[in-house]
Design a protein around this nucleic acid. Structure first.
Lengths: 196, 196
DNA sequence: AGGTTTTACATACGAAGCGTATGCGTTGTT
DNA sequence: AACAACGCATACGCTTCGTATGTAAAACCT
């Protein structure tokens, strides 16, 4: 049943975010959902499979939010910067940090080979490809640039969240992100757009 | 005894790199070092403490290597780029990937608050601070820029290592890294044009 | 519609691992 | 020489995961 899958994923999101992947007990988790471990192993195979499902769900949500935010804010390169800033701010969510940024890579391996195919990364890559086609960016490798950019954004969020002065660090991180991203800009005329 | 600590750390490096943190058994690990779990809990408190010690050791080695490589290769900004490239190449080592980049953050939390204080990051930050003082870089926040830059390098390595065409991806990643880093460069003509 | 298979989940079982409490030998102290 | 402290080993309990088995309902076939 699809309903039980949803209930388990919901409970897993809460448990993984609160206790971490290793600290979350399958018994407690399933009981929270009004089920037992039997349902879990039937639907997801093992604990890793459940985490993969949870990560996939969150990743899709993030990619969707980032895409809409980026579309609503500015055009072209400003759009790319807004997307990165959106990633940074989204990654301040403890749930996203713990599940997607910390436990996800450790348990499932590098995000580039996740079953979810990492939708967030795909969004950034296509955005970069579009800007390259328009001639606004240097002819860099879109995949590589997207990876570097998104990972920079996410790790910035890790750093900010671990600190106790988030309000001070967040603008600094976004400014640094903007500076780094400006390195992708094609040389002369587009650069005038990079101020601050 | 310091000798037993060294033996345990050595065995732990091998075990963590091979089986991963969660998959490494303390019994097997200590037996490999000719000891038992008693020595472990006496010297390191718990499994996390052992990982922290291992991470600290590797981090110091990496920072040392990066510093010497960067000093030997070029000056000023080229030095910074060489440092980033060195991080990327070092992070292709499976031991570093598994222990420092994957399990480390998941178990110990964000690197910025590690007991080791993350020497790698410190090296990059001081390098950036020096370049800012020379006026070669924009007056960005050194801490933020260093975090974004080093995390970008490390995640690039994760991506490359997970792929099966490392020789093709490595130059692409370094090129993209150079492009991003160039965004930190001060631009006299553009800045004078924008001054108001 | 009735019997059979398959599905969806619960229950029971075994094994492994971590952390702590305790024990033992050795070294240092006075 | 007796006693304390230290370093490490041994023993125990508790938790947790994965699998194997059981069961009731649904789906399927004729």
């Amino acid at each position: 049943m699809e309903a039980t899958r949803a209930k388990l994923i919901k409970a897993a999101r809460a448990a993984f975010a609160d206790k971490g992947y290793a600290g979350a007990s399958m018994d407690d988790l399933t009981a929270q959902a009004g089920l037992t471990r039997g349902a879990l192993y039937h639907n997801f195979g093992d604990k890793r499979g459940l985490l993969a499902a949870v990560v996939n769900q969150i990743d899709e949500e993030m990619a969707h939010r980032a895409h809409t935010i980026a579309q609503g804010a500015g055009h072209d390169w400003e759009c790319l910067v807004a997307e990165g800033a959106a990633y940074i701010e989204m990654a301040l969510d403890p749930e996203i940090q713990r599940i997607v940024l910390l436990d996800g890579p450790a348990v499932l391996g590098d995000p580039s080979q996740w079953p979810s195919q990492n939708n967030c990364l795909a969004v950034t890559r296509t955005a970069i490809e579009g800007l390259i086609d328009k001639g606004l960016l240097k002819p860099v490798d879109a995949e590589a640039s997207a990876r570097l950019l998104s990972s920079a954004a996410f790790n910035a969020a890790l750093w900010i969240a671990a600190s106790d002065e988030r309000e001070v660090l967040l603008p600094k991180a976004i400014a640094a992100f903007r500076a780094l991203a400006s390195g992708l800009l094609a040389e002369p005329e587009a650069r005038s757009r990079d101020r601050r």
